[in-house]
Write a protein that binds this DNA or RNA. Structure first.
Lengths: 159, 159
DNA sequence: CTATTTTGGTTTCTTAACGCAACCATATTG
DNA sequence: CAATATGGTTGCGTTAAGAAACCAAAATAG
């Protein structure tokens, strides 16, 4: 049956992974953030099979992460652009990038360094913080008990 | 051939996805952050098939996201605990959680609210910021050209 | 000490997803 | 009209996921 789904899970991480948790979706979103918009460009830059790309783009559009825009005179060309929901994955992608750079350094030793277009400043490491700005690790947080109990296990036991 | 790998990609997002980019790994890490340590507990709380769980745990241990700890008298019991590398996925998980809560609200309307154990404060939304603290969107950043060109497309063309 | 349960797996089998390559239709270019 | 670019779809073989059964060692119950 492959691929369990978690649409009804009370865990938002599980629900998020439903939409961008497969091998390709997040890379497509990343590529879109780099500016790629065309089917063929995604295909060539990612080296993804066309049918898979087609499937993922459709799904991302269905999930409103991307939107399909007709361009050109007679609508024969489309572009896939990030929606606000898609652009909102920026912190996820950056967090993942920083984790990758820290723990699996590039074999070429040159991590991609994004910078603020305006000031040229580098990006600060992503951190989990309280409202007050205090940095938190996993061990610093707790979860109300009754919520913890059904965090991500309910989707399975009831289905 | 299924599942392309990106070990040699110069894109750290792609490399990160190699380790935690499948359907289960990040959920396992999440569950570990909730305090789960035992094989059977992971299995029951996630509803994952045992062979898949076994495979993922092994892989996460291989990738040093988890470490396997012998507990009990005669070493018949193991625990899987997060390493520092694993705990360092906290920002990724939180970013994903916040995205899920924002764009795919819980069907039960009760997003899990993590709080600082010490102060009781809620977690601030994750944001990409410059060193100076300025919040950045996708559109605010740029990437040096020569780096962008080979961001995530090289792993395929050469392999 | 034996029977049962817990724990941490492995094996088998079916089904779904992936990847490749070929094919296709429309629109542009020459 | 031929060639090419674009955005797909179709077929087919391979691989990975999922369910359930099986297994062995250790803990627990009686």
């Amino acid at each position: 049956m492959a691929r369990k789904r978690f649409d009804d899970s009370n865990c938002s991480v599980a629900r998020a992974l439903n939409e961008v948790g497969d091998w390709w979706s997040l890379l497509i979103v990343l590529q879109a953030m780099y500016g790629t918009r065309r089917f063929v460009d995604f295909q060539q830059e990612l080296g993804i099979a066309r049918n898979i790309l087609c499937d993922r783009l459709t799904r991302l559009v269905d999930n409103q992460v991307l939107r399909k825009v007709e361009v050109g005179e007679h609508g024969s060309r489309q572009e896939y652009r990030l929606t606000e929901k898609g652009r909102d994955l920026f912190p996820v992608v950056i967090a993942l990038r920083q984790w990758g750079d820290k723990w699996n350094p590039s074999p070429e030793g040159v991590p991609l360094n994004l910078r603020d277009r305006e000031t040229g400043q580098a990006i600060r490491p992503m951190a989990v913080q309280t409202e007050g700005g205090k940095k938190l690790t996993v061990r610093d947080v707790y979860m109300p008990e009754e919520e913890a109990a059904e965090s991500s296990g309910d989707g399975q036991k009831t289905g």
